[in-house]
Write a protein that binds this DNA or RNA. Structure first.
Length: 274
DNA sequence: ACGATAGCCTGATAGC
DNA sequence: TGCTATCAGGCTATCG
């Protein structure tokens, strides 16, 4: 499930693979992936366009092309990109293929078919609904304990729901939310407005720490995730609570519990996280 | 206005 | 063994 560290890793690998390449043709086998514009327009506009930059914003991947065009791509749960040669066998669940003029192909695979692509003018990206509503980047300097504290004072919902809210912080998903809260010794179920500024300080610090460390090792491969080069991440080895239910807590030895919070499977140590 | 929840979808796994 | 039910989760739409 690509979250910020996984999308960042995919961005970094794709930069090496497709920057500067020119699209000759786009094949779309599952039209629902292309949200906007109509598939035929999507294909026609992209013909002859060159990939000039790849940017990550939250969990979104932005392919910046010449002529003021940008593909806004969201991988959702299992979306993935890989560069292939023309005679490489096409993997199951490949839905979109970008054929480049040099004979290579960027293939988009997505088992669950939840991913989306929008083709919009680059100058309109910041105002695009899905991008405009995003909160701040957790690794930027403006994500501070004070920012978090200001946000949570107004919120009745759980701190876990706050961390998952892309309109507050962009990029955290279910895995890293659980890991951040464990390391911060904060219960995922606690109402956000009950937290102190010290709690916010811990959460802020651990958010940056966990995300940076995960990026360093190429993300977490819990299910299907691989980077643009087909390589798995390694952070799943450092997960202390996610999918660790039934196992002893690394800090106190109590049994890690699993429950449901904010509509998500939530893993925590009942002894360490109050 | 806000928070909670269903639905989208396939594959892995649990349960009978 | 083989079938069915459940779960996984990011986001949007819809409900209360």
């Amino acid at each position: 499930m690509p979250e910020l560290p996984e999308v960042e890793t995919i961005k970094n690998t794709l930069e090496q693979l497709v920057l500067g390449k020119t699209i000759e043709l786009v094949q779309v086998d599952l039209p629902r992936i292309i949200r906007y514009p109509a598939v035929e327009d999507f294909q026609q506009i992209l013909e002859g366009k060159r990939i000039e930059a790849i940017i990550r914003r939250g969990k979104f991947l932005l392919f910046q092309l010449n002529d003021n065009w940008t593909i806004i791509s969201h991988l959702r749960m299992e979306g993935n990109y890989g560069l292939f040669k023309s005679d490489d066998p096409v993997a199951k669940h490949t839905h979109v293929i970008f054929y480049f003029t040099d004979g290579t192909q960027l293939r988009y695979r997505d088992t669950r078919q939840f991913g989306t692509m929008d083709l919009v003018n680059t100058s309109d990206v910041a105002n695009h609904k899905s991008i405009a509503n995003l909160g701040i980047e957790p690794l930027e300097a403006n994500f501070t304990e004070q920012y978090l504290y200001d946000q949570i004072t107004k919120k009745q919902k759980s701190i876990k729901a706050v961390l998952l809210d892309q309109g507050i912080i962009a990029g955290i998903g279910n895995i890293y939310a659980d890991e951040i809260l464990f390391r911060s010794k904060v219960s995922p179920m606690i109402a956000a407005n009950k937290l102190s500024i010290e709690d916010c300080s811990n959460i802020c610090k651990n958010t940056k720490l966990v995300l940076k460390e995960a990026i360093k090792v190429g993300g977490s491969s819990v299910k299907s995730y691989v980077n643009g080069l087909g390589k798995m991440g390694m952070f799943q080895q450092q997960l202390l609570v996610y999918k660790q239910n039934g196992k002893p807590c690394a800090v106190c030895g109590s049994e890690i519990q699993k429950t449901r919070t904010a509509g998500r499977g939530t893993h925590y140590c009942p002894n360490c996280q109050k």
